[in-house]
Simulated scan of single mutants.
Amino acid sequence: AMTHQPTSSHVIEGDPSSWKTSYVENATNLFNKDVPVCVKGGPDGASEKIEELTVRILLGLNKTKQHKVLRVQVTSDSDPFFFHSMEVSEEEFQSLKVEQSILVDFHQFPDKFIELLEECVASRGEANPRFLAVLRLGAEEGDDSALGVVETNKFKHLSHISLAFRPGDDASIKKYLAARLMDVKGERDVWRRSHGDASDELRDARAAVEAAAAEATAQREAARDAQAAAQARLDELAAKLKRSALEELENTKT
């Protein structure tokens, strides 16, 4: 999982067979974390296991740039072809709101959904987690899946939400991986620029330290020279006083 969450991520839409038939959008990255997910179902039907899956929530615009679109992507670090996603526009959300008995509007929904996912993250490692994300796979390959969040109390299991997802086909996985590659390249460029700035600062700091050291050395040498000159003058004065005293003593004897 990422420790640094960029403020935006690339989304590629359109026909992935050619770059000319695709378009790229910068969507706002609302959530990007590893979440413990109970994966159920699938072709074998009986499997059920807890996996760490990456959940990304992006808020962007549709192709016409007229309506906002919320995209949710579920991926696995251990399987680059594991990809389940859903997207819902402001208009489509009204149907989802009625279907799921959701009380908030489109703009509030991402925050509330993220709160549920954060509860799942906070319950990680518990023997009986209070909140658990559940991904139900279709019985056949290519069938729709569903991602939900279940809260367990002493009385019953409460399903807070269940969103219909599509498993990735070749085209959607290709677009997702291409977008992630663009994200990584963008992060690399940012790192290079910041690293370059840090190198410049380090070089300037090193030059300042070397200049200060040289100045300190020069001051020590100047002080040593001044001390030597003062000592020489003292020695000369002492010698003169000694000669004067001897001369005065000789004069006294005569």
Rank of each mutant, 00 (worst) to 15 (best):
R56N: 11
Q73F: 14
D79L: 00
L59G: 04
I57W: 10
V35E: 07
Q108P: 00
E51S: 09
K65L: 13
F31D: 08
S76L: 04
I50L: 15
G60W: 09
V88Q: 03
K65M: 10
K112T: 11
I50T: 14
E115V: 14
V88A: 07
E92W: 06
F113R: 04
D105Q: 05
G41L: 01
V104C: 15
H67M: 13
G41W: 03
K112Q: 15
C38M: 14
F93Q: 01
K68R: 14
F109T: 02
N26L: 09
D77Y: 02
K65I: 07
R56C: 09
N32E: 13
E51L: 09
F93Y: 10
L117D: 01
V104K: 11
D79I: 01
E51M: 06
D77A: 13
L103G: 09
E52K: 14
A27P: 00
N62R: 09
I102A: 07
P43N: 06
L61D: 02
D111N: 15
A46G: 13
P80I: 07
F106T: 00
S101V: 13
T75G: 03
K33F: 13
V55K: 05
L103K: 14
P80T: 07
M86N: 06
P110D: 08
D111V: 14
F93A: 01
L103Q: 13
K112P: 00
P43S: 10
D44E: 11
P43F: 06
V55H: 08
L53T: 04
E51V: 00
L59H: 10
H67I: 10
S47P: 06
L116F: 07
K40M: 08
S85F: 14
I114Y: 03
F31K: 10
F106E: 02
A46V: 12
T28C: 05
L58G: 02
V88W: 03
V39L: 02
D111H: 13
V39D: 00
V88S: 06
V88H: 02
Q94E: 14
L58V: 03
H107E: 13
S47W: 06
H67D: 12
S89W: 06
V88N: 01
S76A: 11
V104E: 09
D79M: 00
F81I: 10
C38H: 09
R71V: 06
P110Y: 12
G60R: 01
V39G: 03
